[in-house]
Design a binder for these strands. Sequence first.
DNA 1: TTGTAAGCGTTATCAC
DNA 2: GTGATAACGCTTACAA
Lengths: 343, 343
Amino acid sequence: MSITIKDVAKYADVAPSTVSRVIANNPRISEKTKEKVRAAMDELGYHPNFIARSLANQSTQVIGLVTPGSSDVFFQNPFFPTVLRGLSEGAHEKQYALQLVTGQNEEEIYNGVVQMVQGGRVDGVVLLYSKVEDRILIYLRDRKFPFVMIGKPFNFVDEITHVDNDNFQAAKETTEYLIEMGHERIAFIGGDKDLVVTVERLLGYQGALKQADIDQKEEYILHQSFLREGGQDAVCELMELPLEFRPTAMIVADDLMALGVLNTLNELGISVPEDISIISFNNVLMSEMSRPPLSSVDINIFELGYEASKSLIQRIEKPDEPFKRVIVPHNIVKRFSSGFIKL
Amino acid sequence: MSITIKDVAKYADVAPSTVSRVIANNPRISEKTKEKVRAAMDELGYHPNFIARSLANQSTQVIGLVTPGSSDVFFQNPFFPTVLRGLSEGAHEKQYALQLVTGQNEEEIYNGVVQMVQGGRVDGVVLLYSKVEDRILIYLRDRKFPFVMIGKPFNFVDEITHVDNDNFQAAKETTEYLIEMGHERIAFIGGDKDLVVTVERLLGYQGALKQADIDQKEEYILHQSFLREGGQDAVCELMELPLEFRPTAMIVADDLMALGVLNTLNELGISVPEDISIISFNNVLMSEMSRPPLSSVDINIFELGYEASKSLIQRIEKPDEPFKRVIVPHNIVKRFSSGFIKL
DNA sequence: TTGTAAGCGTTATCAC
DNA sequence: GTGATAACGCTTACAA
C-alpha cells in the first residue's frame, strides 16, 4: 500500500540496499547518489516502515512504561503526569517512543510486561515505582532485559540503574527543620509500607529524632495509601490522642494527602500553622494553591522522569557500561503551613 | 536469540505454519496437534514476536495517543490521567497497547504523528482534544487513517467518529441552574478560544441567557488558558468592575482554574458562595477538597476515554461501518460553592 | 488436516 | 561505491 524502499529504489534507479544506506547516511555512498535518492524519497513521499526496520534490527526504539498495580490511584496523583512529561522529553530527544503497559491490577500488569518484553515490542522498560518485593523487577533482572527504576531498589542497589531522590536525607532535613522550629511531637504519615520511598523517609525521620534525642512514639507513625481519604483518617486518629500528646507538627508523604489533612483539621477547628505545622512531599502545583499554601519538599519530579529516560536509553545503547545511580536533588519549599511551635 | 515459531515447530515435530495456526486457534487443526504444539510452547517458554507478526499482518495492535501541542499544560490537568485510565481500560479489553506521541510543541507533535502513522507503528489514533483548525486532524482525514476524537470536531462532524459530552447542553443547564438561584450577572470564564469545547459551552451559556431574557455583557466573558493563573487574572478583571456590575455568579471552564478563582476571591475578602457563586467543569478529585467544596459539572472523563478506545478499535476492525458519535452523559454536582443569590 | 513457500519492508553481509 | 541476497519471525495462499 504505502511507498516502500523498493519504490524509491526503482524511481531513483538504484538498488534497495543503496536506499537503505542513504537513510542510514552511510559515508560510503557518494554525495551524488545520496542527493538523487533523497530527491526520489521526497518526490514519492517516502517514510520508512518502523516495523520492518525493527524486525531487521531487533530494536524498536520504544520504551515501555510500567506503573504500579494500583494504577488508578497512581494516575490520580499529580506525580504521574509530571514524571511522564520528563520521560517524554528524555525519550523524544533520542527519538524513542513511549508505550504504556495497561492493566487494572498487578497480575494484568505483570502479564503486560511479559508480553511487551518477550514480544519484542520495546527495547527497555522504566519502572515508575519501587516496591519491596516485585515480581516484575525480578523478571526483568532474570532476563537481563534493560530497565531502569524510578526510586531506590529494595535489593541489588548496585546492580540496578535507578534514578532517585535522597529520600532518607530529605526526610531527615525536613524533620530537623521542624525540630529547629521547636517541635518535638512530630507525626509521620507515610504512604504504603511496601513502597521503598516510604521506608527511606521513615528512616530519615527516625534518624533526625534520634540525633536530637527525641523519643519516638509509635502512635505518631501512620501509614496510609496515597490518597486524600488516607490523610483524613490519619488526622482523626492523631487528634483522638489526649491533648498533651497530640503532635504539633506532621510530615505527610504527599501533597494530595496533605490537602486532605488540611481539610480535616479545618473541619475540626484546628488551625494551620498556629496549632499544628504541616509539611509534605512532592511540591505539585496545588501545594501553592491550598489555604494556607503548603510547605513541601520539592523532589524535582520532572527531572526524575527525564533522567530515567536518558539512563535507560544509555543502558539500551551501551549495555556494557556499569549500572549507575542518579540522585536528583530536592529542596524544602517553605510556605505557610509550617512554622515555629506556639508557646 | 529468543524462542521462535521454528523452534516450537521442530520440538513438536510439525511445520511452522502449523504452530502459527495453533496460535491463531485455527479450527482446521486437530485437537491432538493443538495439544502437542501447546505443550511444546509451554515447554520452551515461547512468546510470539509482535514485531514479526505486525509486519506479516500489517497491523500492530497499538493505539497512538495525541495530546495537544501545549502538552505541559494538558498533562498538569487531572483530566489527563483520568481519560488515560479510560483509554487504557478500553484498549486492554481488546488487547491493544497504548503509545504516546512525544513532543514539546505543535510542530514536534505533528511530526510525531506522521512518523507513527507512516511508520506503521500504530493501527489508529485518538486525538485527546478538539481544536478549531488542526493540521493533525486534516492529515489523518486526508490519509483516511483510522482515528477518533475526544470532543466535538469543528468541521465534518458527521464524518469523524467522536466521543463527547453535550457541552452545549451542559453549559446551558448550568447557566439555567444559576438563573434559578436568582443570578442574572453571570460571568463565563472559558478556556482557550480555539478549543471547540469552549465554543460549545459559550453557546450554551448564551443560549440560556437569551432564553431567560437576560442581557449579555461582553465584560462577563473571559478566556484564559486552563491553568490556575488564568483563573486569578480573570477574577481580578471582574472584580475591578464597579460594585453594581460585578457578577454574582461565575461559570468556570475547569476545576483547577476554579481553585485559583477561589483563592483569589479569598484574598480579596470576597466569600463564596455568600458574595459570589462558583460552578466549574470536570468534577475532578480536588473539587471535593477545596473550601468550600466546588459545585462542578461531572463530565465522566473516564467514560470519555473508555468509549474512545472502544470506538477506535471498532473503526480499525470494521472500517466500513459508518462514523458514529458517542455522547457521554454529564451531571451537575451541587456542592457548596454555589447557591441562592443574596438579597 | 498439515506442509511448502512466498511475502511483509527493512538491514547487513557479501561480492564486484 | 553499489548491487544481489539472505536474514528477521511471522502469516497465508496454495499444495498435498
